[in-house]
Write a protein that binds this DNA or RNA. Structure first.
Lengths: 130, 130
DNA sequence: CTCCGTGCAAACGATTTGCACTATG
DNA sequence: CATAGTGCAAATCGTTTGCACGGAG
């Protein structure tokens, strides 16, 4: 099963990267529709799934209702705005936390660790007058 | 807006606590139905929402998955089975990670930090012959 | 020319909501 | 007795899928 580089796939990928953000499928759909008005939401979903499967983009499973997709497929941590649900990447020195130093949980085989910061993003701080 | 302790609310809370697990609304619905057959799923949803709002139970939100509710409202970390999606609590010495030592993210006000372990739970390990 | 990808609409699973009725405090 | 909570059904939200057609390799 080889990947074909279709017009819609190319634009979806380009718009996600250009946004520099962590978009939901429908946010990206809105962006892409401006360029390719007849594209369907199902195509956006299918391509995001395929691209993340292929390791070209990242898929975020963090707090919130909708999935978000990350232009950067590399391993890194996220900060999540508790007000507007926006997500940003950040690099963290994990203070010595890694697979080898993770605590053992009785009965479990520990395979990984997600660290997620919560906070208030610049825009929301401004609106709250902080 | 005061809370009334209705029969259904009491049973929902009791069953969640007795389970000692992190149940989804419909898992809990199945349990509660055995005791109170005419209860509706909507009531379970409404009560779980209200109880977590009130800080009596905890709510777990992982994007793209069903919400799970935690009998324990206290701050703690979770380990999550990547095979069956079961969740357990665990206490972690956070290796010095806390609000004061969290890295600053430019523009953000950092308010918290979630650490989530991924792993394979005892049951799934058995089934996989590990 | 082969299939992977597309658009569309319908299906789906999880959750929420409007409404008339019930029962707690 | 005021009004929070309930059961039911329908609505909604995010996402997936079946199908016939279109286009990349």
């Amino acid at each position: 099963m080889q990947l074909r580089m279709t017009n819609q796939r190319e634009i979806i990928l380009r718009e996600l990267r250009q946004s520099g953000r962590h978009l939901t499928a429908d946010e990206l759909y809105d962006l892409v529709k401006k360029i390719m008005p007849r594209i369907s939401l199902a195509t956006v979903y299918r391509n995001l799934e395929i691209l993340s499967e292929a390791g070209i983009i990242g898929k975020l499973e963090i707090s919130g209702r909708q999935k978000r997709f990350d232009y950067d497929p590399e391993e890194h941590d996220h900060i999540y705005c508790v007000v507007c649900h926006r997500v940003d990447n950040f690099e963290l020195d994990r203070h010595g936390i890694n697979i080898d130093t993770l605590p053992q949980v009785p009965g479990y085989t520990v395979t990984g660790c997600r660290l997620e910061l919560l906070g208030i993003c610049p825009e929301c701080r401004k609106q709250q007058g902080q």
